[in-house]
Design a binder for these strands. Structure first.
Lengths: 180, 180
DNA sequence: CATATTCATACTAGGCAAGTCGGAATTACG
DNA sequence: CGTAATTCCGACTTGCCTAGTATGAATATG
């Protein structure tokens, strides 16, 4: 169930470029991006090349050149980026909506594994296809601001017992604010 | 976001063994399992070896030997089997609850990608760690029975337009019955 | 022209997925 | 006992994919 490094770097970079757009930073060179995000320069260059081919980013060549987002952030669905770089969201082919492939099992319609994986696929898609780069950038900036504003003493972490606490997730930050 | 063939085969085989237990079929040989599930014999043998090592199945050696489940089905969480064979559920290490690893990003706490992936991870775990082999076997058998009982003419599929329709999933079958 | 940058392709090292092979050990049956 | 069926178990193969690197051309600034 994993995202490749290529996919991870692509998404991190798009988020970074989204923040840049908010800040009106203009284009950013590959070397700056690589440095800031601590990514291998040449590898990132190749990834940006691919993102450019797909129309997500555009670049300015020559000295003082660089890369920026090429489309409105709310038109970039996270799921589509993952599909571009890493392929289908579904754990197995026979549970994929966009890249279905028949599996070897004797009766696909009554295959328990397929039924289960259809739900897993939809659980993933319900997040990645629902939210856009805009949502992620908004939430990222909001969390950054809130945490830098708060008194560092009062927001002491509870020992960071969990690593995947839903309270630390995207949805908590997104929906938490809608309630408030 | 994919499950390996090894993982797929392991789960399919466990489901098959779960059905066998329900039917009181006793042990099943690797060759039978391979034939029925259309899996490569030697590969399946290796997978069963691993499942046995982890205590999920037990085997009877010699002629007329074979494999059966070694534990109660409701004690076998689907997520744990996936973890055994394929590793963590989370798409990236920094969003894993069980196999966390630090990532290279400058500020993990405020990393938008990590926030998002925490939710993806939890969406997956909410299914795979909630439901057990028992649930999957129950649902599989129920769907099989219902579809073989129904009049084949009335349950004509609507052209199978989608491949990951939630209505064809595990949860629909499971929860659909609870309502009825 | 020097320098900074993207564009584009080709290449590589290593790992891992998906299997296969071969034989030893175990058990049932005649 | 001998043979057939079966699991056990490590070693091996094959090929693709991941995660990069290398090299140089093209482009723009000053």
């Amino acid at each position: 169930m994993k995202l490749t490094k290529r996919g991870e770097y692509a998404l991190r970079t798009l988020i970074r470029l989204g923040i840049a757009k908010r800040m009106e930073e203009g284009v950013i060179s590959v070397s700056s991006l690589a440095l800031q995000e601590k990514l291998p320069f040449k590898f990132l260059e190749a990834i940006l090349f691919e993102l450019r081919g797909a129309g997500y980013v555009e670049s300015v060549r020559g000295k003082y050149g660089g890369t920026r987002l090429a489309k409105p952030m709310d038109s970039i669905k996270m799921g589509d980026v993952v599909r571009l770089i890493d392929g289908k969201l579904a754990p197995i082919g026979c549970a994929s909506e966009t890249e279905y492939e028949k599996c070897t099992c004797p009766d696909e319609i009554h295959c328990g594994l397929r039924m289960l994986m259809i739900d897993v696929r939809n659980a993933i898609a319900n997040i990645l296809d629902r939210y856009t780069l805009k949502d992620v950038v908004d939430v990222t900036l909001r969390k950054q601001e809130r945490d830098s504003a708060a008194n560092p003493k009062t927001r002491k972490k509870r020992a960071e017992a969990r690593h995947a606490d839903p309270a630390d997730g995207f949805l908590a930050e997104l929906l938490g604010s809608k309630i408030a």
